[in-house]
């Protein structure tokens, strides 16, 4: 087994206030290792608004601009314009939003920024519910999930919004999924996105949430890997909204991913079969767009 090729530099300091096993913290750590210090981070309301630290402290070694919930795309656009006017066009402006701030309340400002092809990198770290406020459902919450607003037998019976397809429909220059369980792939995609200067770029990062998902904190990375290996969260890239590249192909049934999680514990075998059918259908659609087998060479399972 070869060691991971991950940069040594750290831009995330000890003392952040994330939960034990927080996938979003791992995501930020890898993201900044990839992007480097010439990066400004715009954070709307989300877990990271807390994790970053309370005044007067900060857990990041790059500038942070906290922003109103719905505004990540617009605020980042303003920062970009100002840095360009100040003669600092090379600085990367990264919007860093949760699924609520991306799929729901921030979708309009994200759509506007992408339509304008703003020179920004927009990252959604997706933990599939409003975790910061106590695990309420978002439009990123998958079918079958119990949250505090889809409790007991009212578990969520609609599908997760496909944010990648939404972005692809904007004909965005670059959109990719990434997972904290595949750091080399993730770092490659962040660097590719960083270097695609002059265009809007989007990364959808799967960030497991032990607190909200009802799993022990040591399962964070394992669950993220299982999401990829079951095709629940396939890793792929889309260029200009039309050119798809698959990075992975699952080899496990969805049960392997669902069964360790408290949020899915109520599901019957029939419910799980329903979810398997949805995942299979999504995978077929994705395969058809990619028009070819996955390119797995860069990944370590």
């Amino acid at each position: 087994m070869r060691p991971l090729q991950v940069p040594e530099e750290e831009y995330l300091r000890r003392g952040h206030v994330g939960c034990a096993g927080c996938g979003a913290v791992i995501a930020m750590r890898f993201a900044l290792k990839a992007l480097g210090p010439d990066t400004v981070v715009v954070i709307p309301a989300c877990c990271w608004g807390v994790i970053a630290g309370a005044y007067p402290q900060s857990s990041l070694d790059v500038p942070i601009l906290h922003a109103a919930f719905a505004t990540a795309g617009a605020t980042a656009s303003g920062v970009r314009a100002a840095l360009d006017m100040r003669g600092e066009p090379d600085t990367t402006v990264m919007a860093w939003a949760g699924d609520g701030g991306t799929f729901d309340i921030g979708l309009q400002s994200l759509s506007g920024a992408v339509e304008r092809d703003e020179d920004i990198l927009y990252v959604c770290y997706d933990n599939e519910a409003y975790m910061n406020t106590g695990v309420q459902r978002s439009s990123s919450t998958p079918y079958g999930t119990r949250t505090t607003t889809t409790p007991r037998e009212g578990w969520k019976r609609t599908r997760k919004k496909n944010i990648m397809e939404t972005l692809a429909a904007h004909r965005i220059a670059y959109a990719a999924t990434a997972s904290i369980a595949y750091p080399e792939d993730m770092i490659r995609k962040f660097r590719k996105a960083r270097d695609l200067k002059g265009h809007a770029r989007f990364l959808h990062v799967f960030a497991s949430c032990p607190t909200g998902w009802g799993v022990p904190s040591e399962l964070t990375v394992k669950l993220a890997r299982l999401a990829v290996r079951t095709n629940v969260f396939p890793l792929y890239e889309v260029e200009n909204g039309v050119s798809y590249t698959l990075n992975t192909e699952g080899d496990l049934p969805v049960r392997a991913y669902l069964s360790p999680q408290g949020r899915f514990r109520h599901l019957s075998p029939e419910d799980i079969q329903d979810i398997q059918r949805m995942v299979d259908e999504d995978w077929r659609l994705l395969r058809a767009k990619a028009q070819g087998p996955p390119q797995r060479a860069r990944l370590m399972a």
Partner: peptide, 16 residues
Amino acid sequence: ESEHSAMAAVIGASNA
């Protein structure tokens, strides 16, 4: 795409 975003954008710009 909205006034909400207009003010957000100038907030970002002024902060920068």
